[in-house]
Design a protein around this nucleic acid. Sequence first.
DNA 1: CCTGACTCGC
DNA 2: ATGCGAGTCAGGT
Length: 411
Amino acid sequence: KNLSKLSGEIEMPLVPVLAEMEYAGVKLDVENLKSYANELRGKIIVVEKQIYQYAGFEFNIASPKQMGEVLFDRMKIISNPKKTKTGQYATGEPELLKLKDKHGIIDEILEYRGLQKLLNTYVEALPKLVNQKTEKVHTSFNQAIAATGRLSSSNPNLQNIPIRTIEGREIRKAFIPSNNDGVIFSADYSQIELRLMAHMSKDENMLNAFVNGEDIHTATAAKIFNLELGEVSRDMRSRAKSANFGIIYGISSFGLAQNIGIKRSEAKELIDNYFKTYPKIREYMNKQIAFARENMWVETINGRRRYLPDINSRNAIVRGVAERNAINAPIQGSAADIIKIAMINIYKKLLNENYKSKMILQVHDELVFDVQKDEIEQLKAMVTYEMENAVNLSIPLTVDSGMGGDWLEAH
DNA sequence: CCTGACTCGC
DNA sequence: ATGCGAGTCAGGT
């Protein structure tokens, strides 16, 4: 019954919505990307030379295998380098960051990798995918791939456009309105996964923080470090934020220590304090695991199931993965359910109220619109309402939004 | 054509 | 020994 409801009321009605989004497409500022490509190529050549200088010879910087051999066999910048499961030297970002102060070459490698990634994956690739007839990029939104019920996006993937670095943000500027007098509007859920954790666990302390409209990471820090809200330092907030995210993923003290860069014992203490602050979250996590052991599946607020055949495995590592899935899937999946409902309702209104504006992208907790300027006020109110009221939880869902001449400005 | 390492997003 | 994806490149079959 639940599954036919999920199918009939969410997944099937979503099909034409996604089809229209794919068909609408996104306009790209190709000229800007082309000049940015040249800028990146110039920077890459400089960094490349610097790396060869440090190494004393030329090699393929893009080959992790060669990079490992250069750093650890020939340059010997440290004695006991970490290896991957195949026995190759690990040269990924987390490893290189630990070696930053060992040699000047490390910063250059990180810089090179960052620039090359932007150039190859985005700046050069996106213009090639512009449709000649529509002069837009048309992604595919895949509805039946992710195990949790999320969408995925491919050819091109428009759900992983850079935003974190200054160089990356430049790429977002190329996503522009389809009309000269249009704007990009973006609306995103604030902390939807933590709100769902609060809702599903019914933890009073976390529910209260959201009901009172507090900054959840500051509120968490105040509680676990036993301070007033005003006394929370930047570092404390940052640690509490890591703890909040870690909780959603079922993190270990080892993983949290790694993430924040503290001792395992300190991470354990942080987690202990976390569960003292939010006792029902620990209860909820245990309940999810117990339910999964019994039924071999867990479910979202709309009855979407994730089957967990490994939940009773005798292999502790395999079982651990399934246990974290039992905790994470209902949270991540419920967030997916909610935004899908909002999308269906928004699409209906766009049609029924004869909007010219179009919904063009979904990025897990964000919806992006290609907007006709005279519709912006009405559209903003409508989208915010539909997102905030897609479902009724024990706490409010809140939406932040913005608009601008490109996707970066809208954020 | 496939896998692994790496890096981009939420 | 923290969840969910996709794209690129190297290197092997």
